[in-house]
Amino acid sequence: MRATFMYGAGDVRVEHAPDPVLREPTDAIVRILRSCVCGSDLHPYHNLPASEQGTPMGHEFLGVIEDLGPQVSGLKRGDLVVAPFAYSDNTCALCREGLHTSCPNGGFWASGDVGGGQAEAIRVPQAAGTLVKLPVGEDSELLPSLLTLADVYGTGYHAAKQAQVSPRTTVAVIGDGAVGLLAVLSARQLGAERIILMGRHDDRTKLGIDFGATDVVPERGAEGIEKVRELTRGQGVHAVLEAVGYMNAYETAVGIVRPGGVISRVGVPQYEDAPVGFGSLFGPNITLTGGPAPVRAYIEDLLPGVLDGTVEPGRVFDRTVTLDEVPDGYRAMDGRTALKVLIQP
């Protein structure tokens, strides 16, 4: 099969690789119909050390089950399924508490001996607990939106959920990437009436307005903080959904959150230190939350809205490439000429 590997910063290659095979009785083999490039994939694209051993790439995919281990229940060959970006057994105490990303029997795609999703096929560990059957056909127009359930929609929803967004909540979303835009959508779904989107790309912020943003703040740094404070009569916002992961975004979050508020971080942190002392968070009773989204916990809740067309999270995809064109997709996202790239093997 063909699969995507990264050999160092900026060095993405699509190569032939061995077909995946069942290794455990709880495995499944999935033929991938749709996958994509994630904003978090750009972090290694910028700084991965060069290596002769390529790193498999991709953690968002949906496809058709081609083979099953004997201990996989509830699924069959031919089922169309979506996989969250972390696999899990969905039965342990942590999974039952909605913390699938901490499952002791789980893990992440493109790590260890588990392949990546930017490929033609993949081995899925803990298949019964991980894969969610989709009640549509392989040619459904909903596939792009259904693919967002693998990560970005669930991650945006996790940011809003962890921040306890409700109709009384004033929200600021930092970042106009796919996760930030779907955090806007999720905040609106949870009832927020005032949603400030901090982003500076017009095509993206226009989509954010369609998703429910009431205000757009393109300014950054101290100027952006001042603008949000002006919009909130100097008080700041109840909830900050930080979908970037860089230190300047975190500092902005600290600058715009109101006393008693919540900073919910789902952007993969690209900093080693963050001020969490008395003056920044402890004194004003500010909560810091977030983390890798246990999207498996949210798929059943978010799926009906996608199926009935109430929401269209797949609108974040603005470019489609073939598997062989994946390196071009990385360049487009890195150059900000694409918001999120859809891959059709």
Rank of each mutant, 00 (worst) to 15 (best):
A332P: 00
P313R: 12
P275S: 13
V316T: 12
V311F: 09
D318C: 06
L307R: 01
T322G: 14
G329N: 02
A293G: 08
I299H: 09
E312W: 11
V295P: 00
E312H: 15
I286G: 10
R331I: 03
D301C: 04
G279P: 04
F278W: 07
T322L: 07
G314P: 00
P275F: 05
P327E: 08
G291L: 00
V326K: 09
D301L: 11
F282D: 02
E300S: 14
N285L: 05
V276W: 05
L323M: 08
Y330Q: 11
E312Y: 07
R296C: 04
I286H: 09
R331W: 03
V306Q: 10
P284R: 15
G309H: 06
D324A: 10
T322Q: 12
V311P: 01
R296Y: 14
R331P: 00
V316C: 11
G329V: 02
A297E: 14
G277Y: 02
E325N: 01
T320M: 05
V306P: 03
G314K: 00
V311I: 15
R296M: 12
V316W: 01
G277M: 02
T289V: 09
V311S: 05
V321L: 05
L303R: 14
V321K: 10
R319K: 10
F282G: 07
T322N: 10
P294N: 07
R315C: 10
N285E: 07
A297R: 15
P284K: 15
L307T: 05
F282C: 04
D318N: 13
A293S: 10
P284W: 10
P294W: 03
L323V: 06
